[in-house]
Nucleic acid binder design. Structure first.
Length: 474
RNA sequence: GGCGACGUGGCCGAGUGGCUAAGGCAGCGGUCUGCAAAACCGUUUAUCACCAGUUCGAAUCUGGUCGUCGCCUCCA
């Protein structure tokens, strides 16, 4: 089956057909660095990670650009009256962002342009828009985009601008605009901006929020590129405005496929920085949860559906990851010659099932169900003693291959962990006393180690152990 | 008010017209074990929110009702 995506523009699933065969150019809306990103933000970046990983898995060469908004109202507000520059303030959260995406094993994009690094390009695009009659200057000196000049305005969000409800959130200073839905391309400096401004041919001020994405995406990916993504809340007005700006300025179609991921909810409601009901990745880590559990929680959901975050769900995800790792370790230990001869067939079936799911708009739940079915089948074969060393290698290769998409660091399941000598001695002692049927002492040792987070498992081939690392011992 | 998403067993969650409605979690029984753990085998709970319609046949299509949630210019 061919790869298909649900395109927000058409509201239909469409077969993916890149502009240039074998190459994908994608732009993904990144963070505004005014605070630590929360776990809802990371759902979007995780979706984009799975998208780029799967495209690569399918053999495409990917160029991903993710912007970093390092100048905006909130950043300016945060540094006002403080002895820190806007750029230093933003840098702290840029650093945190990169630490977090490493923690989650999110692959780096090819380019991370910052807004402040592309003021020149933004000014150029605004001038072009002015030349073509799409922009006008308000009484306050700011420059606005006149949506009435762009007949297609609203085509992404499927919104009729005339029917927009003008709520209480429209500020008084919007009198400068000809139309209430016009948006700022360039914000003239005022005293609230402090020392955050650029002296340009447009005057003293700073760029509006939307222009950075239009300018930076076309700069790095060309006027017309394949995929543009973001959270559903970006559909309107942000992405709508990007289209208006870019297509008006370049005269070309902007983007072929618009992909948007749904929100992560907490307690059944929307999570937002402004509501203060959010967890950062750091909060999760402090509670002792593995980042891989968090990743699994994200990865195995359907990006088009809301997910309700809870620590119960996260614990279940942690168990699932551990089970996956146990499976890998178990398979790897197989060293016999006896084989069912069915492994090639099972692997093919699992791979086909996985790809069928992912091809269908990245349906990860379906793809993962295939993997679980596969695991059950292999486990059954192991119990029959019919998994050969060669079979084992094929299975490991397959699992590591799909992990290029899942990013669960499966290879780390094989990292040999060293136990402290005193613990090794205890395990040896326990083996001895078990042979003597001294089960009181045997169980005492097992409980002792369990308290230290080391789980012992007896098998015909000797005692195995694992470190229960998903939870902090309490 | 405009636009949109969703409502499947105790929980999570696949399934867009047709065999006995995936998969996971939790529970229960069994194999294995000194007992566990892990694994495997078996297994309980679904009038697919409700009503009406289309159809030989609907969780799946159409209309309506109820409920939950989101966007409507900071928002992933």
């Amino acid at each position: 089956m061919a790869l298909r995506f649900l395109n927000t523009m058409t509201r239909k699933k469409e077969e993916f057909d890149p502009i240039k065969k074998g190459f994908v150019k994608m732009y993904t809306c990144g963070p505004t660095v005014y605070d630590f990103a929360h776990i809802g933000n990371y759902r979007a970046y995780m979706f984009e990670d799975i998208l780029r990983r799967y495209l690569k898995y399918k053999g495409y060469k990917v160029k991903q650009v993710m912007n970093i908004t390092d100048v905006d109202d909130k950043i300016i507000r945060s540094v006002k009256g403080k002895d820190i520059s806007a750029s230093d303030y933003a840098q702290k959260f840029i650093d945190a962002f990169f630490e977090d995406i490493d923690t989650l094993n999110i692959e780096r994009a090819e380019v991370y342009p910052t807004a402040t690094g592309y003021v020149k390009e933004m000014v150029a695009m605004i001038e072009k828009l002015m030349e073509k009659g799409y922009g006008y200057r308000g009484e306050d000196g700011s420059i606005y985009y006149s949506i009435s000049k762009f007949p297609d305005y609203g085509k992404l969000a499927h919104i009729n601008v005339n029917e927009l409800k003008t709520g209480a959130r429209v500020k008084h200073d919007e009198y400068d605009k000809e139309n209430l839905s016009d948006f700022a391309l360039w914000k003239a400096w005022d005293e609230n901006d402090g020392n955050v401004f650029w002296e340009t041919s447009l005057g003293k001020g700073r760029p509006g929020w939307h222009i950075e994405c239009s300018a930076m995406s076309t700069k790095h990916l060309g006027n017309h590129f394949d995929i543009h993504t973001g959270g559903v809340d970006n559909i309107f007005p942000h992405h709508e405005n990007e289209i208006a700006q870019a297509e008006a300025a370049t005269g070309e179609k902007f983007v072929n496929y618009w992909l948007h991921c749904e929100h992560l909810l907490v307690d059944g409601g929307k999570m937002a920085k402004s509501k203060g009901n959010f967890y950062t990745l750091r909060d999760i880590a402090e509670r002792g949860y593995s980042p891989l559990a968090m990743r699994y929680f994200y990865v195995t959901s359907d990006y088009r559906k809301k997910i309700d975050f809870s620590f119960e769900a996260l614990e279940a995800s942690g168990k699932a990851v551990e089970r996956l790792f146990e499976f890998l370790r178990r398979v790897r230990k197989m060293s016999g010659e006896d084989s069912t001869g069915r492994i090639d067939e099972l692997v093919k079936s699992a791979r086909d099932g996985f790809e069928d799911g992912m091809d269908d708009n990245l349906n990860a739940p379906r793809a993962m169900a295939e993997i679980f079915t596969f695991i059950s089948e292999v486990n059954g074969i192991i119990d029959e003693g019919k998994l050969s060393k060669e079979d084992s290698k094929k299975i490991i290769d397959f699992m590591l291959d799909i992990d290029r998409v899942l990013g669960l660091k499966m290879e780390s399941a094989f990292v040999e962990k060293e136990l402290a000598d005193e613990i090794k001695l205890l395990i040896e002692e326990r083996d001895h006393v078990r042979k003597d049927r001294n089960y009181a002492r045997s169980d005492e040792i097992r409980d002792m180690l369990k308290a230290k987070g080391i789980i012992l498992m007896d098998s015909p081939r000797g005692t195995m152990w694992k470190i229960d690392e998903e939870y902090v011992s309490s």
